[in-house]
Design a protein around this nucleic acid. Structure first.
Lengths: 65, 65
DNA sequence: ATAAAATGTAATATATATGTTGCAAAAAGT
DNA sequence: ACTTTTTGCAACATATATATTACATTTTAT
């Protein structure tokens, strides 16, 4: 499923996928694929994204069921 | 670095590494390596572990700095 | 002390996250 | 309308998470 919370947090910070990717140190495609729910990212990458966007893991990657 | 919070949550539930591994659907070694900090697990595995231990991502995998 | 269970570690194999390049489509700016 | 930026998508290459098997070590129970 798509990660809409991640996309929202990114646009709230006024960052493009490419800009966020450069901050985190991955490729633009990786960010795009995570947002579109086609990748299962590593924990360290999730943490890097969270820190770049001033959020926590629960904020961006946790889904209640 | 070792993930002591994960190990504590596991023993609080009275589960061995092998038992947790079976619940989550991975090998015993994978759980051991995550606890000892030698693996960078995938997000879906982290979520599976959290649900098996009734915790959230922030509980087990987030470190303030 | 002994046996059983739990954990650590290592070798090799496989699946998949991620990188790179390139191009197309869509969105935004002028 | 036109240009620029942003995003999507595909093919191939590489790195690494994870599986499997086996054995050693430690911990726990008897």
């Amino acid at each position: 499923m798509k990660n809409i919370k991640l996309k929202l947090a990114r646009v709230e910070k006024d960052l493009s996928q490419d800009e966020l990717a450069k901050i985190v140190g991955v490729s633009r495609q990786t960010i795009g694929l995570i947002e579109s729910g086609k990748y299962n990212p590593s924990l360290s990458l999730c943490v890097g994204i969270c820190k770049a966007l001033s959020r926590t893991l629960d904020d961006l990657f946790w889904e209640e069921d």
